[in-house]
Amino acid sequence: MPIKQPPKILSIQTVAKSRLFSIESLDLSFSNGVQRTYERMAPSGRNAVMMVPITADGDILLVQEYAAGTENYELGFPKGLIDPGETPEQAAVRELKEEIGFGATNLIPLKEVILAPSYFSSRMTLFIAQDLYSEKLEGDEPEPLEIVRWPLAQADELLNHLDFSEARSITALMLTLRHFNKSNIEE
């Protein structure tokens, strides 16, 4: 595939700002002379992590957490922002301790994903977390998160669960299943 030259950025302006988000307008000029205005969330410079914790018994641990976007409780994997100075691995272990009360001595990186590259630049590193040990840290959640155990062997049923609909969690689960299927084939 030929490498395309990105469009030239003619200007960037902040068009809206809230306590959490800034929206930018970008005036662009493409190599064919076409000019367009795009909008995006302003880059924050902070990336995130999501972990698929797997117990020694072969269960995955999910959290049920309120999601303001859907105005409902959603089922997904522990996740959070990487703090300044942290590596993705350090953030993963910290977030596990804050959200489910476990750390992990074995993190397997799966993939770095972007939620919606047309609008966001932040990246999320997906991990499998194994060799869990009990340790709790205080998190920033407004209420305790409900932890849900689900047998990894019944992942197909989880994929059909109405409350398990977040794309990054589905991606993490599918990559986890692929990882273990690949491992079983190589043995």
Rank of each mutant, 00 (worst) to 15 (best):
Gly80His: 05
Ile100Trp: 03
Phe180Arg: 09
Asp59Leu: 14
Ile3Ser: 11
Pro84Gly: 03
Phe164Ile: 08
Phe77Ala: 04
Pro43Gln: 13
Gly69Val: 10
Leu159Arg: 15
Leu96Tyr: 02
Leu158Ser: 15
Leu158Asn: 12
Glu138Tyr: 08
Ser169Cys: 12
Leu61Ser: 01
Phe21Glu: 09
Leu115Ile: 12
Pro7Tyr: 01
Asp156Met: 10
Leu61Ile: 08
Glu71Thr: 07
Thr105Glu: 15
Gln64Met: 15
Ser122Asp: 02
Pro53Arg: 05
Ser22Ala: 03
Ser169Leu: 11
Asn106Ala: 09
Asp156Thr: 10
Thr125Ile: 10
Glu141Asn: 14
Asn181Trp: 15
Val49Asn: 09
Glu112Arg: 09
Ile185Asp: 04
Lys8Gly: 01
Tyr38Phe: 12
Val34Phe: 15
Leu145Ser: 15
Phe21Leu: 12
Ser169Phe: 02
Asn47His: 13
Phe164Thr: 04
Arg123Met: 10
Lys4Phe: 04
Val63Leu: 10
Glu95Ile: 07
Ile54Leu: 03
Ala68Glu: 12
Arg46Gly: 05
Phe120Glu: 04
Arg36Ser: 04
Tyr119Glu: 04
Tyr133Cys: 03
Arg46Ser: 10
Ser121Asp: 09
Lys17Asp: 10
Ser31Val: 02
Ile12Met: 01
Leu137Arg: 15
Gly45Trp: 02
Ala56Phe: 04
Ser134Leu: 08
Asp140Cys: 06
Ile100Val: 14
Gly85Asp: 05
Ala129Asp: 06
Met174Gln: 13
Arg46Ile: 14
Pro43Ile: 06
Leu62Ala: 05
Ser44Lys: 13
Tyr38Gln: 01
Phe180Glu: 08
Trp150Thr: 07
Arg94Phe: 12
Tyr66Ile: 08
Glu138Asp: 10
Gln64Cys: 12
Leu158Tyr: 07
Gly69Glu: 13
Met1Gly: 13
Glu187Val: 12
Glu166Asp: 00
Glu143Val: 14
Lys182Ile: 07
Ser165Gln: 08
Asn106Lys: 14
Glu65His: 03
Gly69Lys: 13
Ile60Arg: 05
Asp57Met: 08
Ser31Gln: 11
Leu175Met: 07
Lys97Met: 13
Glu138Trp: 05
Ser29Gln: 10
Arg149Tyr: 06
Lys79Pro: 00
Pro88Ser: 01
Lys8Ala: 01
Leu177Ser: 08
Arg123Gln: 14
